[in-house]
Simulated assay, not measured.
Amino acid sequence: MKFEVTILGCGSATPTLRHWPTSQLVNHDEHYFLFDCGEGAQLQLRRYNIKFQQINHLFITHLHGDHCLGLPGLLSTMHLLGRTKDLNIYANAALQEAIEIQLRVSYSRLRFQLKWHPLSYDEPQIIMENAKLQVMSFPLNHRVPCCGFRISEKPKPRNMIPQMIEKYTIPFVRIRQIKAGADYILEDGTVIPNADLTLDPAEPKSYAFCTDTAFAEKTIDAVQGVDLLYHEATFLEKDRQRAYDTFHSTASDAARVANMAGVGKLILGHFSARYHDLNPFLEEAESVFKPVVLANEGLCFKV
């Protein structure tokens, strides 16, 4: 089952020609989820051949412009391309008012419905789920209300051994029960243990998206044990005072979170425009935690 993260933008507030504002696309079993929507997000979706009409759930961490100003343009393009399917938006309740004002003053009337889901910034909460996964929001430590998101697969059913179906002539209607853990009883009363009929499923995978935030121990609990963590690293340690003043993290802060949470792999992103060489970010983080990679537009990571 596909579970991938494509980086559309990994820069911070000031635009540069090197990086686009924050946005990324999660593809889970061909279901698309957009996380943040900085300026130009729709162009990046085009660039990487992502069918953004398939995006039905959009999550916005906070209302700083580099994380949400791409939304009006994306909505307009979806409308112009004939979208009629509902779009679910999970964000600060104030974003609904801002978008409705923009639509009103531009005399725009979308062909599709926006389904708004206001976020809580007080405690973690499950905000979306389907048969295969759930999305949890959790508060971050920023200058304005801000959430991170954790996408976790639900436990998978056990895998049937095809030869056992044929050997015991197992009817189709029983297979779901067996995959859920049931034994199979033959007509003569013989019990065939589930362990003889099935194989263990793949372990559920999880991904966490943390931007923007200063280092916070509560973040460690929220991302505990994820397979892949994206954590902002706006500054280097030499600019720690700047990070402190703006409620952002350094590369070593991000690595500390990854290390203390026992994650599988760390992606650094949300780089300040002041840095032209990003290798020091990697070096700084690797002194605390490995493996670490640097985000870059177009990179696709398997969870």
Rank of each mutant, 00 (worst) to 15 (best):
M78H: 05
M78D: 00
H79N: 15
H79L: 03
L80G: 06
L80V: 06
G82T: 10
R83W: 06
R83P: 06
T84F: 12
K85F: 08
D86R: 06
L87T: 00
N88H: 13
I89P: 00
Y90N: 04
A91E: 03
A91T: 10
A94D: 15
Q96A: 14
A98L: 14
A98I: 14
I99V: 14
I99K: 00
I101W: 11
I101Y: 15
I101F: 14
Q102V: 09
Q102H: 15
Q102R: 11
R104H: 15
V105Q: 15
F112R: 01
F112L: 07
Q113A: 14
K115R: 15
K115S: 11
K115D: 11
W116L: 05
W116Y: 10
H117F: 12
P118T: 02
Y121G: 03
D122Q: 15
D122L: 12
D122H: 15
D122M: 08
D122C: 09
I127N: 00
I127Q: 02
E129C: 01
N130T: 10
K132S: 10
Q134L: 08
M136W: 13
S137K: 03
P139S: 01
N141C: 11
H142C: 07
R143A: 12
R143Y: 11
V144Y: 06
P145I: 05
C147I: 02
F149H: 00
E153C: 05
M160Y: 08
M160N: 05
I161W: 06
P162E: 13
P162I: 03
M164Q: 12
I165W: 04
E166W: 06
E166T: 15
K167T: 09
K167S: 06
